[in-house]
Design a protein around this nucleic acid. Structure first.
Length: 430
RNA sequence: GGAGAGAUGGCAGAGCGGUUGAAUGCGGCGGUCUUGAAAACCGCUGAACCCUCACGGGUUCCGUGGGUUCGAAUCCCACUCUCUCCUCCA
């Protein structure tokens, strides 16, 4: 949700951001116009209410209250009429009235793009910030992970389809174990870097979804039981960020770092025909999500740190990757700045997203009302929230299979995972 | 799923329908005293929004939403949540 105060104070900044995202900035003028009308109505309303309160207080002070009430009744009744109509008008214009035009504009507008986010209209303008590792050269044709996995008997897409349709996978034996090993590895590393592990609910209310801004982003991409009013989380970012909704921190409580391992559920409605094979795009996948709650002045440094936290995992696993700074046009709704981590996939000779780290600044905090106090008596401020994958388990698993595949079809387990997997190689079962 | 109890400020806990945004205690902040600290004492101590350059003024908020009334934390209705007991279950 956009900050109405910022719109008033620095409308050009909002306009600039909209233009950089590739949208029409004229809504800013509409916001200012509606805001002006609302404040006028509010002032009128409050004046009338003050008058009425004064009359009521007179009755309270009178020695004969009944008589006072009787004599003032006509005046009060007149005020009541004016108050009712002014109240209706003010409400219809208010920024916090659910379907008011002003509210709609503030709520539907994406976050203000940070200055350091590169210009550009779409993914082709994303900037490679750095690249790590050298893709391995294979003396044979590198196979895609689904072939490797099926041959090893650790991935079973056919039976998954029998159970649940397309975009599901069954992991078996060391495949299942490798998946669990990755999750455990990620969580252990997160803990070592100061993230507190959280096991959140996977079903959340519509309000929780709304608070983190997912309802606009994933609304038709989410699984839900509308009757029960519960949504399956598309990412643990949702419960982690909303965890402290309506709370006020004192300065010593910040920063907060959370890590959660959770399944994620997505309809992938807009991705028909894309990535239909393998583990890349599933209706259900697991992920370790990192969330940080920061002081505003620290949030961009925290984004660098969080991105480094995620990247360190790939480095420890020996998986080549690159870091992209997403351009303004490719930035998601909530984000002011995003780094994507892309891992190297030898079967397709390309880098694929395995983590996305975003600084949502105060955008989600405003919706969720997560605030803090700089000094004991200071005014309340919104915190900044950040989230990033650290990492997506399924995609890491497939990256391991592809990057560590051997000519005989077996897969070497990366050193760092061996204690977790309990094996240094995955070979075909007899 | 059935029965009951409850929801008030950071916490605990009062609150006859009338100057109650809310007693009291704890906590927190500031001060006096002290070499320092503690204790004691004094003062302050919720939020959002609007008007104002400012001083200041105003409106709203006692789970949520309605209603009664000139006036509601207090009365009425609905809902939500929490707790206890039963049922069920992992």
């Amino acid at each position: 949700m956009l900050d109405i105060t910022l719109c008033r104070r620095d409308p050009d900044r909002i306009r600039r951001s909209a233009i950089r995202r590739g949208s029409d900035p004229s809504f800013v003028d509409e916001i200012l116009r509606l805001d002006e009308r609302h404040r006028l109505a509010l002032t009128d309303l409050e004046t009338k209410k003050a008058e009425k309160n004064r009359l009521s207080a007179e009755i309270a002070k009178a020695s004969d209250r009944a008589a006072a009430a009787a004599s003032l009744r006509p005046q009060i009744a007149a005020l009541d009429g004016e108050i009712a109509s002014l109240d209706a008008l003010a409400k219809s214009l208010a920024p916090d009235t659910p379907d008011s035009p002003l509210r709609e504009l503030l709520v539907q507008s994406p976050n203000v793009v940070d200055e350091s986010t590169p210009d550009g209209a779409d993914a082709s303008a994303n900037v490679v910030v750095r690249t790590w590792g050298t893709p391995r050269t294979f003396p044979f044709v590198a196979r895609p992970h689904w072939e490797i996995g099926e041959k090893l008997g650790i991935l079973d897409f056919e039976r998954a389809a029998k159970l649940s349709g397309s975009r599901f996978a069954v992991l078996r034996g060391l495949g299942a174990r490798l998946s669990r090993a990755l999750a455990q590895f990620f969580l252990d590393r997160a803990a070592a870097r100061g993230y507190v592990e959280i096991a959140p609910p996977y079903l959340v209310t519509q309000q929780t979804m709304w608070r983190t801004g997912q309802l606009t982003k994933f609304s038709d991409a989410m699984f839900a039981d509308l009757e029960a009013g519960l949504y399956l989380i598309p990412t643990a970012e949702v419960p982690l960020t909303a965890l402290h909704g309506d709370e006020i921190f004192d300065a010593t409580a910040l920063p907060i770092r959370y890590a959660a391992y959770s399944p994620c559920f997505r309809k992938e409605a807009g991705a028909a025909g894309k990535d239909t094979r393998g583990l890349i795009r599933q209706h259900q996948f697991e992920k370790v999500e990192l969330v940080r709650i920061e002081r505003p002045e620290d949030s961009f440094a925290a984004l660098e740190a969080m991105t480094a936290d995620a990247a360190a995992l790939l480095e420890e696993l020996g998986l080549p990757y690159r870091v992209l700074s997403l351009c303004a046009g490719d930035l998601s709704f909530n984000s002011a700045k995003t780094y994507d981590l892309e891992v190297w996939l030898p079967s397709s000779n390309e880098y694929r997203e395995i983590s996305s780290c975003s600084n949502c600044t105060d955008f989600q905090a405003r919706r969720a009302q997560i605030r803090w106090r700089r000094e004991p008596k200071a005014k309340l401020e919104l915190v900044h929230t950040l989230n990033g994958s650290g990492l997506a388990v399924g995609r890491t698993l497939l990256a391991v299979l592809e990057n560590y595949q051997q000519e005989d079809g077996s897969v070497v387990v990366p050193e760092a995972l061996r204690p977790y997997v309990g094996a240094d190689r995955i070979a075909a079962a007899e």
